[in-house]
């Protein structure tokens, strides 16, 4: 696939993802803040779940996307795929940060602690550090191909953290509650499941939309810099 065709495709179809995400999230927020019931044990504060879980799930989705894009890059060596990797990593860092913040705010009134070093939280913090390291590495390597290759390898290695995050609450002793949606079934009452599902799907689609926008942004910036670089060298000669 040529870069311009991909970018053209992203530009053409991005709006549909944006519209679907905004619709799902608006209904999700309305049901989450207005119509859903407080929990029998936590009370109103359960509403934090409707932003916390979507953010965390999307952070993991974003990292999984980064993983597959990195493999794609190593296979095809296409610079525009590297732009997409860069975009996915930035978004993954954003959603990971959001997940950490909303989690801390949910932890204080329920657990009585902003932060604990239990397996779920520790493995999620490692995801955050991996992404910080990944983006730092990108800024320090100049050569485009070298940068793309090293970063892709790093992202692929870091992927082992993802199943650890997901299953940590099932495998080990954890203050964090186990999975609410698992092979055991769904442990969320219907009127709370609605905002939960709408927000989870909505934020995931929003991520897809943001990835499309950000990939274009990074590609265009790259294009613009390359062009300006040529202007500069032409001026020197």
């Amino acid at each position: 696939m040529t870069a311009t065709r991909l970018i053209g495709w992203l530009r053409k179809y991005e709006k549909w993802f944006g519209i679907v995400a905004a619709s799902l999230m608006s209904v999700g927020l309305y049901t989450g803040l207005v119509t859903s019931s407080p929990d029998y044990y936590q009370g109103e504060v359960v509403r934090i779940m409707y932003v916390h879980v979507p953010f965390v799930q999307t952070a993991m989705l974003a990292y999984a996307t980064l993983f597959f894009l990195s493999i794609w890059y190593l296979w095809k060596r296409d610079a525009v795929v590297d732009n997409a990797c860069h975009a996915a990593a930035g978004l993954a860092l954003f959603f990971t940060g959001g997940g950490l913040i909303t989690g801390a705010i949910w932890g204080k009134p329920t657990w009585n602690a902003w932060w604990v070093w239990d397996p779920r939280l520790t493995s999620f913090a490692i995801l955050f550090m991996t992404l910080v390291g990944y983006l730092m590495l990108r800024t320090f390597l100049d050569d485009q191909e070298k940068r793309a290759t090293f970063c892709a390898i790093l992202a692929i290695i870091g992927f082992i953290d993802l199943p650890i995050i997901h299953f940590s609450v099932e495998w080990w002793r954890s203050l964090h509650q186990p999975l609410s949606v698992s092979t055991r079934g769904v442990s969320i009452a219907p009127n709370m499941l609605l905002p939960f599902a709408l927000m989870s799907i909505g934020v995931s689609i929003l991520f897809t939309y943001m990835l499309m926008v950000r990939t274009q942004m990074l590609y265009l910036e790259h294009l613009f810099e390359a062009k300006q670089g040529r202007f500069l060298s032409e001026g020197e000669s």
Partner: peptide
Amino acid sequence: MIMAKHEEDYMPIEMK
């Protein structure tokens, strides 16, 4: 220092 450990089920009081 006590921390509360809650479970993964969520439902309104009416259902409880």
